[in-house]
Computed example of a mutant assay.
Amino acid sequence: MAKNLILPRKTVQDIDNRVERILRGLGNPEPPLRLEDVRELLNLDLAFYTANDPGIAQETISRIRVAAIQVYKRPTLLIEAIKKLDLKALYLPDRKRILLDGDLPLKKHRWNEAHEIGHSLIPWHEEMMLGDNNQTLSFECHEQVEAEANFAAGRLLFLRERFVDEAQSLEPTIKSIRQLHTRFGNTLTTTFYRFIETFGVEQPLVGLISCHPHISRRPVFDVDRPCRYFIQSPAFAARFSKLPEVELFEAVSSYCGGQKGGSLGEAELILSDDNGGQHRFYFETFFNSYDALTLGVYCGPQFKVF
């Protein structure tokens, strides 16, 4: 499970200012954003590779550090590094080139490309990616760098305040998320992720991206880590940070049906905050045939009856 990292306010503002300049340079376009226009503005090149493509093996790398692994210049070819690190996308700063894994489904290309554009926008990321021999990238630092690139990608693909304004004009439901998914041209999963972070600045929202929760349709999975992502809105993280993932997944499973797709059910659940207080949340779960998307929206405190 990967809980989303809440970035410091100063970092958020700096990255957002960079994204704002890009969108202003494009004339504040209407959704969906054309990433080819972004690459042209930034003078970025895009290429594709596959793990078995010998052509790309002609390209060598000086130094690239990914997920705390340093790969140094030697007779090593780029394709070897891609295979070893199982890379799905990467950015080569010295060549201003984005490389995407051509074997991935097309719908995944858009987010991966925007993520690498995010790396290119943040100057301190170049130092991390091309670092030196004496410093390794810790897990915590890598997590921070990836979270920053994800934030930049989200603000770019969802056109900053354009998405915020449209999201907050709707009810916090999966139906609204599906509507915004179509309008902005991004995947349902990334729209789901962005909606929770955007809508939940003041109102606690929580999201799970998991396998099918119904016991009859669950694949073999790690019972201690049942969710691929546990998405906290800023307001949720401030008050419910101690909530166990397993406990929440099992509570969601209690109302989910065994349907093959679409809505799996909805229910009001009681969650405990970090101080032991109880609160009501409205939950609903939707299965898109790949992932189950579960949205929990804060309703209010659960008052005890004496």
Results as ranks from 00 to 15, higher is better:
residue 7 L to Q: 05
residue 9 R to A: 00
residue 11 T to E: 11
residue 15 I to G: 02
residue 17 N to I: 05
residue 20 E to K: 11
residue 22 I to K: 06
residue 25 G to S: 14
residue 26 L to T: 08
residue 35 L to E: 05
residue 36 E to W: 06
residue 48 F to T: 04
residue 54 P to I: 11
residue 56 I to D: 09
residue 57 A to C: 15
residue 60 T to G: 12
residue 61 I to N: 13
residue 64 I to H: 03
residue 65 R to A: 10
residue 66 V to E: 09
residue 68 A to T: 14
residue 68 A to Q: 15
residue 75 P to K: 09
residue 77 L to A: 06
residue 85 L to G: 01
residue 89 A to F: 06
residue 90 L to T: 05
residue 91 Y to P: 04
residue 91 Y to R: 02
residue 92 L to S: 12
residue 98 I to N: 04
residue 109 H to T: 00
residue 109 H to E: 03
residue 110 R to W: 01
residue 116 E to S: 05
residue 125 H to T: 07
residue 128 M to R: 15
residue 134 N to M: 07
residue 135 Q to G: 08
residue 141 C to K: 14
residue 143 E to G: 10
residue 143 E to Y: 11
residue 143 E to L: 09
residue 145 V to I: 02
residue 146 E to W: 01
residue 148 E to R: 08
residue 149 A to M: 06
residue 152 A to F: 02
residue 162 R to Y: 13
residue 163 F to D: 05
residue 167 A to T: 03
residue 171 E to F: 05
residue 175 K to M: 07
residue 180 L to M: 00
residue 182 T to I: 10
residue 189 T to K: 09
residue 192 F to A: 06
residue 196 I to H: 02
residue 203 Q to T: 11
residue 206 V to K: 01
residue 211 C to Q: 09
residue 213 P to V: 00
residue 215 I to Y: 01
residue 225 R to F: 13
residue 228 R to Y: 08
residue 230 F to E: 00
residue 237 A to W: 09
residue 243 L to N: 14
residue 250 E to V: 12
residue 255 Y to K: 05
residue 259 Q to S: 15
residue 261 G to T: 15
residue 262 G to C: 13
residue 266 E to H: 12
residue 271 L to M: 07
residue 272 S to C: 07
residue 282 Y to F: 15
residue 283 F to K: 06
residue 285 T to S: 15
residue 287 F to Q: 00
residue 290 Y to F: 13
residue 291 D to I: 02
residue 293 L to T: 11
residue 294 T to L: 12
residue 295 L to P: 11
residue 296 G to M: 02
residue 300 G to F: 10
residue 300 G to D: 04
